[in-house]
Design a protein around this nucleic acid. Structure first.
Lengths: 109, 109
DNA sequence: AATTACAGTAAGCCATGACTTACGCAATGG
DNA sequence: CCATTGCGTAAGTCATGGCTTACTGTAATT
């Protein structure tokens, strides 16, 4: 159930900014931090959350660590969304074909 | 920028449960609440957040209010995801074609 | 009209989590 | 080697937000 972690990870604005910073390609932690209003450790912590959610990969390049988008987490999220989308549409279609008459309220006991 | 609100809304587990409860079709607030471990006002508050994010619609049916999935919010989220997906893939492709040599660190000033 | 069902709002409590500073540790360079 | 750069982790602070218990309001039933 990784899509839940992905949603949680992408909910925070700062963390989303970190994630979107990686759209253009691999970047190091320090490089991200200098462009942002938060400290470098904060960026590190955000990257950890993103990594645990499968949204980000890291690779040691000497003393630096390069982070990049990991498509697997995104795929998981997309799959959940698509599945939900289909089910919602089917429910809607079924409702049109078989309009449920307004249900009576329960009688007072 | 509604996709941000959608992500925030879907991050909370309870709220996501409320949302997923609507997959099978329109349900009233009280109906949702009886199936859940939280109080009815809590459900109401969650529905408000989902509604503000464009993920849910409500319709007054007598004294009851029926809630159902609003595809527009989902569409917004899907669009953002797809766009991100494409950009990440392009960045990856560009990186392969034009491998950036490991950048030297800045000299101490 | 009075009562009861259904739902939204207010106010307050409390846990989660996002941030900071301080520290520890590996890798590079003089 | 010693200093410096780059990064992760620890610990503590503080705000956000999710939940509960009132209550207010509206629609339906008798």
């Amino acid at each position: 159930m990784t899509y839940a972690m992905a949603l949680t990870a992408l909910a925070d604005p700062t963390r989303r900014a970190v994630f979107e910073r990686l759209r253009s390609g691999p970047v190091s932690v320090g490089e991200i931090a200098t462009d942002m209003p938060v400290s470098r450790p904060a960026v590190s912590q955000h990257l950890k959350v993103l990594k645990d959610a499968g949204l980000v990969r890291d690779e040691a390049h000497g003393a630096r660590r390069m982070y990049e988008v990991d498509p697997s987490g995104l795929a998981e999220l997309r799959a959940w969304l698509d599945h939900f989308w289909d089910e919602a549409l089917n429910a809607f279609k079924a409702e049109v074909e078989l309009p449920s008459q307004p249900r009576r309220r329960k009688k007072a006991r």
